[in-house]
Write a protein that binds this DNA or RNA. Structure first.
Length: 177
DNA sequence: CCCTGATTCGC
DNA sequence: GCGAATCAGG
C-alpha cells in the first residue's frame, strides 16, 4: 500500500498525538509498524515529545565494537534505617475486597521515600517505574495501614470444608514461586 | 514474552 | 522510497 498524501497526513497526526507505531499501523491498515516507523523517520519526525533526549545514541554496527560508557552510580541518600522490603502481593485467593488505593493526600511513597511507620502496601507493578507504596501512617507493629491491613490479613472467609479459619495469624506468609 | 522506537540495507 | 529484519531497551 502506497503512502498517499492523506495517509501520510493521518500518520503524522497520530504520531503527533503520541500513538505508538503499531497502533498507527493498525489504524491505517495495510502497513506494519515497521513501515510506519520507517516512514516516520523518512519524514524526519522521529522524536515527538522528547524532553531533553537528544538522540538515543545507538552503536548499531554489527562489526563496530561497542564502547560501553556506563558506570553511573546513583547516589542515594537514605535517611536512616533502610525500609525493609515489602513483599507479598495482595494475594486474592477467595475475594479481593478492596484494591490498593492511592493516597488520598495525593502522596506516594517510593522505594526511596518509604520509611518506618509507612504503609508498605504495594501499588502498581513492581517491575514498572511507577511502582509505589501506599505510604500512609501505620502502627509500629504492622507494615500496613489500617485499610490495607484489613485486606492483607483478612481471615479467609470461606475456607475449604474441614479447615478452620485462621484469623490474622499470618504475618509471615511468604509467597514463593 | 510482551511491547516500544531505531537502524540497516536489499529491494 | 519502502519496509522487513534486526537491534536495543522497557
Amino acid at each position: 500500500m502506497a503512502w498517499t498524501d492523506d495517509r501520510v497526513e493521518v500518520l503524522t497526526k497520530l504520531w503527533a498525538e503520541g500513538l505508538s507505531a503499531s497502533q498507527i499501523a493498525k489504524q491505517l491498515g495495510g502497513v506494519t509498524r515497521n513501515a510506519v516507523i520507517g516512514k516516520v523517520h523518512r519524514l524526519g519526525l522521529s522524536g515527538r515529545a522528547k524532553p531533553s533526549r537528544p538522540a538515543t545514541i545507538r552503536t548499531t554496527k554489527p562489526s563496530a565494537p561497542r564502547t560501553r560508557t556506563t558506570a553511573r552510580t546513583t547516589t542515594v541518600t537514605t535517611p536512616s534505617a533502610p525500609a525493609r522490603t515489602a513483599r507479598q502481593a495482595p494475594a486474592k485467593p477467595p475475594t479481593p475486597p478492596v484494591e490498593a488505593k492511592p493516597l488520598p493526600s495525593g502522596e506516594y511513597a517510593t522505594i526511596m521515600t518509604i520509611r518506618d511507620h509507612m504503609c508498605k502496601w504495594p501499588i502498581g507493578d513492581p517491575s514498572k517505574s511507577d511502582f509505589r507504596f501506599c505510604g500512609r501512617k501505620t502502627d509500629p507493629s504492622t507494615p500496613y495501614c489500617d485499610a490495607h491491613s484489613s485486606v492483607a490479613y483478612q481471615p479467609s472467609r470461606r475456607r475449604y470444608p474441614g479447615q478452620k479459619t485462621l484469623g490474622q495469624t499470618t504475618m509471615k506468609h511468604l509467597q514463593k514461586r
